[in-house]
């Protein structure tokens, strides 16, 4: 790979643009495609190749392009997955670093500054806006997970309602079965329909049996992973740690 190709790829990634590195395996010629346009390289992909690359990027799937273009390999580099956590609680202190290790870019929302302090969350992006406004600014997309952990309906409910109008691939809400049932009741009276409510994973997390903040964080991250990859069996939503 030529340095200019490498640099174009890395700068697209740094700018959080969806990018692909194309390699013609026979000749070794390459091109970087980012945000739909060719940025660098000796390979000059035609419209058919660019269409196939766009599909690969959309599905976040690296691979040889479909026949008859399969002499070209597309390595897809999408921007990082994102996790938006509402509630700077103890579990969040464990979940944030775990999610970062798993490749997520984490944002923490909590208007209560005693909770969302840099001392408790060194280096993390902290937003002290009201959760619905903060979430709207974050504009969750299909590679974003949203988790509410405050246990406070004043904070969790508006966040969930805002998240339900997004394409977030995962929504989870901390709270017992009873708490979750009451939450769903409140959200119904706010106009959320059943299909929307069914998107909320509550009680949050896979049923791993753990109770400590770290164990609950693992249960949440495990469930996010399962849902991201479509590995959740239909109708198999189970209760969880908290």
């Amino acid at each position: 790979m030529k340095r200019e190709v490498f640099d174009a790829l890395q700068s697209a990634r740094a700018a959080k643009q969806p990018a692909a590195l194309l390699t013609e395996l026979e000749s070794g010629r390459q091109a970087v495609v980012a945000a739909g346009e060719v940025r660098a390289g000796a390979l000059q992909p035609g419209p058919e190749v660019l269409d196939a690359v766009a599909a690969a990027v959309r599905h976040d799937r690296s691979g040889r392009l479909p026949e008859p273009l399969d002499g070209t390999f597309a390595a897809v580099f999408n921007p990082p997955l994102r996790l938006v956590v509402v509630g700077a609680v103890h579990i969040a202190q464990l979940l944030a670093p775990m999610a970062e290790l798993a490749g997520y870019e984490v944002t923490l929302i909590d208007p209560r500054q005693a909770w969302a302090s840099p001392e408790r969350f060194p280096g993390l992006t902290l937003l002290d806006d009201w959760p619905d406004e903060a979430l709207a600014k974050q504009a969750p997309d299909s590679r974003t997970a949203v988790v509410t952990l405050t246990h406070d309906p004043k904070l969790d409910d508006p966040a969930l309602i805002a998240a339900l109008s997004s394409e977030a691939f995962y929504l989870g809400a901390l709270g017992s079965r009873r708490t979750h049932a009451k939450r769903l009741e409140r959200l119904r009276t706010q106009g959320c329909d059943e299909a929307a409510l069914a998107r909320i994973h509550g009680p949050i997390g896979l049923a791993l049996g753990g109770r400590s903040p770290a164990e609950i964080a693992i249960a949440v991250l495990a469930q996010m992973t399962q849902v991201l990859h479509g590995a959740e069996p239909p109708g198999a939503r189970r209760e969880a740690a908290a």
């Binding site: 890395q10 990082p80 944030a96 670093p97 970062e100 290790l101 060194p122 280096g123």
Partner: peptide
């Protein structure tokens, strides 16, 4: 990989 870094700990290209 301190909290808040933008680059995953296992970024091979970086």
């Amino acid at each position: 990989h301190p909290l808040g870094t933008q680059e995953p700990a296992d970024d091979v290209l970086a």
